[in-house]
Computed example of a mutant assay.
Amino acid sequence: MQIDFKDKTALVTGSTVGIGLAIAEGLAESGATVIVNGRTQARVDTALETLRARQPHAVFRGVAADLGTADGCRELVDAEPRVDILVNNVGLFGPHDFYDIPDDEWQRFFDVNVMSGVRLSRAYTPAMVEAGWGRVIFLSSESGLNIPADMIHYGFTKTAYLSISRGLAKRLAGTGVTVNAVLPGPTLSEGVQDMLHDGQQDSGQSMEAFAAEFVKKERPSSIIQRAATVEEVANMVIYAASPLASATTGAALRVDGGVVDSIA
């Protein structure tokens, strides 16, 4: 199989680091024109420099916009009014005890992790329907099924993405536009590395080894018994975005290393 995104334009939100950056690189490697997004121009410029060095023959554009607001989403759509592939990747995460999370933090997680995907999908899918082809992918998480006790505010946003992606797939039935959710498990992104940094330094282990120990302790149902790489998650997104995945829609595609203990 060969994935070819020639003449396709893809937008990956929150793509200056981590999983989003890996998705952007993978789409570009397969021929897509890729729009990179981050909150600040400095972060976007740094990501573009990195991507252009890795993929010198690819076409990248960048838009700085805070997608946790309606105005930020509007700015992005005004700058890039049409895309063929939308990857709703931007998101916040981090442990916080349920009793200590104030209302405004719940709202912030909802606005960034949920409403950004709602607003952009609402803006971009009509043109996809008109063209008879399009891909929308929501980055959910195994935490949307296996809600972490220390990240309830995060888990509920990822459950919301499962509902939205399934419902939107049904709403766009028969149009040629597919909608899917991808569910990573523990992944060795920059954010996770930052979270583990102090413990890793104290342990004297490599980050990969320390992350594997963390997974075994905190996600003992993991079958791979380690954290995934950002590239492993990106590979699933790239397949789901490709013409080869034309019969896959309304699906929850797990890249969780087997953390969710279910056969379905």
Rank of each mutant, 00 (worst) to 15 (best):
I3G: 01
K6H: 09
D7M: 02
T13H: 06
T13L: 08
I19A: 14
G20A: 07
A24G: 05
G26A: 01
G26L: 08
S30G: 02
R39W: 01
Q41N: 12
Q41H: 09
R43G: 12
V44W: 06
D45F: 13
A47R: 04
L51W: 11
R52W: 05
R54G: 08
H57L: 11
A58K: 02
V59C: 02
F60G: 00
R61F: 03
A64C: 10
A65I: 04
D66S: 12
D71P: 04
L76H: 11
V77H: 13
A79E: 12
R82G: 01
V83G: 05
D84I: 00
F93V: 00
G94I: 04
F98L: 15
I101R: 10
P102T: 03
D104Y: 15
E105F: 00
R108K: 12
R108N: 08
R108G: 02
N113L: 08
V118Y: 13
L120N: 02
R122H: 10
A123C: 08
Y124M: 00
Y124I: 03
T125I: 01
P126D: 07
V129C: 02
V129H: 05
V129D: 00
E130V: 03
W133Y: 08
R135K: 09
I137W: 09
I137V: 13
F138L: 08
S143A: 15
G144L: 04
D150A: 06
G155N: 13
F156G: 04
K158I: 08
T159E: 04
T159C: 02
S163M: 14
I164W: 09
S165C: 06
L168P: 07
K170Q: 09
K170C: 11
K170M: 14
K170R: 15
G174H: 13
V179D: 10
L183Y: 03
G185T: 03
G191I: 12
Q193T: 10
H197E: 14
Q200R: 15
E208W: 09
A209P: 12
E213W: 07
E213N: 10
F214R: 03
K216Q: 13
P220H: 09
S221R: 03
S222P: 03
I223N: 05
I223A: 12
I224E: 07
R226N: 00
V230C: 14
V233Y: 06
A234L: 07
V237Q: 07
A240M: 15
P243D: 14
L244M: 05
A245N: 13
T248D: 08
T249W: 11
A252Y: 12
V255Q: 04
G258Y: 09
G258E: 13
V259P: 01
S262N: 14
